[in-house]
Structure formats: structure tokens, C-alpha cells
């Protein structure tokens, strides 16, 4: 297995976006790309990352391999790469290590690191194809700000989607808060658009703690998609055009 990115910045951001939520995980490498699927330790959230082979500068995977890696260690290794350095990952069949090579574009500096692989029993869940009742596309910075703001007031947020607006509400010991975002088009700046596709109205409650973990992916993507159906996990997707995506799933809080 050998994969090369032209710039380290995307991989650094991907790892930063998921490491605090899932810790140790397995990267599944096939000839179509690298992916991981992992739940957080309390099995409330699930992360699915796909890095498509087309998104790499060069990519080769002769035999499918599952590489168990501590994401905190991977973040440490990637700290040694400059944002504009190229990154090459190498793993030989049966080897218990993965190699990272970073090269500056002027080629005057090359650094190499070897990371020990871990034995990780990952439990994969089948994610069913779902026709969601409501899909909201919005700037990722708006979601990050909304979740951070409401976290000051409560632990949970109720997200309600009606025809042309989406409402985030919370309440706690010191008071209550809500943020309403209305659909807005923008032909010249599509990344600032708020688009609401509602087949059925939805209202679901989620733990803000996890949503705040998810919005760590905001630096990867200007836009985010919230896909919701009543009594179904929320899907928060950060698309990376040409490269792949990070999708986070979060189980709702349910009234007993």
C-alpha cells in the first residue's frame, strides 16, 4: 500500500476532526481509497471517513489491508509535516508498521516516521440507505457557532425543521436559548447558502457535546449537510469535493 498527498493540510484536518471522538481505529485500505468507520466509546456517535483514491496525488493498494492506528499518535506524526509538505504513507504486507514520509516542495527537507500498528477489533455497523425527511445544507461555520452558543445554556439541542426554517433550541439551569436559520439563496456565493429540503417536518433532540465534536470538521468544508428523519440518527456530512467526506452519525435522545 502506498498513498501520496500533495499537501499534508487535508490529512491533518481530517485527523484533527475525528481524533478526539474515536481515539484508536482501523483504516481500511482498498484500491478505491482509504476509509474508516468507528463509534465513540459510549456508542452514541459513529464516524465514517472516506478518502477516495482519485483525491490522492498517487495511490496504490495491491492487497486490501486494515491498519489499526492510534489517531492521537497519527496526529503527533502529522504535526511534524508542514501544511504544504507532501505526505506519503507506505505499508508492506504483513508488516506491523506504517511509514510516513514528508517532503517539502523545494525538496530540501525529507522526514520519515514509522508508526507501530495496533490490533483493533472494529465493530462495523451497516448504515442503511435512508430517504431523509429533512435535509439542511448550510455554512459549516454557522453550525459550529450555533452549537457553541447553545452549549452555554444546555446539554441538549432540539433541532426542528419546518418548510423554510430550521430551529435549534436548548434550555438549562440559567435559562434558554434558540437560534432560527432561514433558507437563503446565494447564486454568487453558494457556500453561504442555507437550503432546506423538507419532505416531512422533523423534530429531534441531540446531545450538544457530540455536535461540538463534529464541528471540528468545519475547517475541511465550507458547507455541511444535516440529514434528519424522525426516530433515526442524525447524519452530519462535511463534503470534501474530489477527495471524499466525513460523515458523523448521532443517535437521538428519546422520551421514555
Amino acid at each position: 500500500f502506498e498513498a501520496k498527498w500533495d499537501h499534508a493540510s487535508t490529512l491533518k484536518k481530517v485527523i484533527d476532526a475525528v481524533k478526539d471522538l474515536i481515539g484508536d481505529t482501523s483504516w481500511d485500505c482498498t484500491n478505491t481509497g482509504m476509509s474508516l468507520q468507528s463509534m465513540d466509546s459510549s456508542h452514541v456517535a459513529l464516524v465514517h471517513v472516506l478518502l477516495k483514491s482519485e483525491g490522492f496525488e498517487s495511490y496504490r493498494c495491491d492487497r486490501n489491508v486494515s491498519m489499526g492506528i492510534s489517531l492521537n499518535s497519527m496526529a503527533k506524526v502529522l504535526k511534524c509535516a508542514g501544511n504544504d509538505d507532501s505526505v506519503t504513507l507506505r505499508h508492506e504486507s504483513e508488516s506491523s508498521v506504517v511509514n510516513f514520509a514528508f517532503e517539502s516542495h523545494k525538496e530540501e527537507r525529507v522526514s520519515e516516521f514509522e508508526l507501530k500498528l495496533m490490533n483493533i477489533d472494529t465493530e462495523h455497523l451497516g448504515i442503511p440507505e435512508t430517504e431523509y425527511d429533512s435535509i439542511i445544507k448550510m455554512p459549516s461555520a454557522d453550525l459550529r457557532r450555533t452549537c457553541a452558543d447553545l452549549s452555554q445554556f444546555g446539554d441538549s439541542v432540539t433541532i426542528s425543521c419546518a418548510k423554510s426554517d430550521v430551529r435549534f433550541e436548548t434550555s438549562g439551569d440559567i435559562g434558554t436559548g434558540n437560534v432560527r436559520l432561514s433558507a437563503r439563496g446565494s447564486s454568487d456565493k453558494p457556500e453561504t447558502e442555507i437550503a432546506i429540503e423538507m419532505i416531512n417536518p422533523v423534530s429531534l433532540t441531540f446531545a450538544l457535546k457530540y455536535l461540538n465534536f463534529f464541528t471540528k470538521a468545519a475547517p475541511l468544508s465550507d458547507t455541511v449537510k444535516l440529514c434528519m428523519s424522525n426516530n433515526h440518527p442524525l447524519c452530519v456530512e462535511f463534503p470534501m469535493p474530489e477527495v471524499g467526506y466525513i460523515r458523523y452519525y448521532l443517535a437521538p435522545k428519546i422520551d421514555e
Binding site: V44, A45, L46, H124, L125, G126, P233, Y249, P252, I254
Partner: peptide, 14 residues
């Protein structure tokens, strides 16, 4: 209050 659901309540292991 509401109870936190778990991923396995919705998605099955494969």
C-alpha cells in the same frame, strides 16, 4: 427527561 439512544439501536452490526 429524554434518554440517550445508542448507535446499535438503529444500525446493525455487519
Amino acid at each position: 427527561g429524554p434518554v440517550q439512544g445508542r448507535m446499535e439501536d438503529y444500525f446493525k452490526a455487519i
